[in-house]
Amino acid sequence: MEVIAVKELSKLYSSRDGSVHALQEINFKVSEGEFIAVVGPSGCGKSTLLKILAGILPPSNGEVRLRGTPITGPRRDIGVVFQSPVLFPWRSVLDNVLLPVDVQRLGRDGHLKVAMDLLNLVGLDGFERRYPWELSGGMQQRVAITRALIHDPAMLLMDEPFGALDAMTREQMNLELQRIWLERRKTVIFITHSIPEAVFLADRVLVMTPRPGCIMDDVQVKIPRPRALEAMNFPEFAPYVHSIRGRFNAKGMIDA
């Protein structure tokens, strides 16, 4: 069953000094439990797409349906992870994780155990009473992922969540994300500008053109899971990366 159907989606930002055509006629569908990666050059409208999917930005044209109903505003069954962790420094790790529970009045009591289990899942057990400034960048981003999962959303939207991390931490986070996904089987839309990261994580990679962004390719990644980091060196891995990169180069772009 399809969770998301994006139809003829366009976005035009207009401001005093002209308008920016960010997205043009985007079409795609996502099935239940699928892990989708979206790659594209910087400024092609990836974040715009994510904000529209999250319901915090209205589209100029077209529509997005979540389980058949159009997205017209923020939804309670979506978890979002941004490029920076966006933690509230005045809340402890646990309180940050429980933010969606507080906002949506789901009841802290019932979610305390869920929060602890999730913190355990991302390897942050014992840190629940700490404050964000006491954590490293990678740990903060794990808190952000935990927060996105706490209210058991149907879908997880991630906007270059590991973009600010160093290469080593980033690989670790990729492994962890795969592990979490294998355990929870959420539908994930994962935006990145790293092609290897997209191929490593995703069932399907959507390749976007430069602005105005539209989808120029939809690549199925048929590498068995769980994928180890070494999979990046396997003979079946390189062709995916190569062909996606080829699409960019053909378009005359510097590779991402």
Binding site: G55, I56, P74, R76, V80, F82, V86, L99, P100
Partner: peptide, 14 residues
């Protein structure tokens, strides 16, 4: 208030 934090709150339907 930082724009990212506002977006987070909005995405939670606050």
């Amino acid at each position: 208030a930082d724009e990212d934090r506002m977006n987070l709150m909005r995405s939670l339907a606050a």
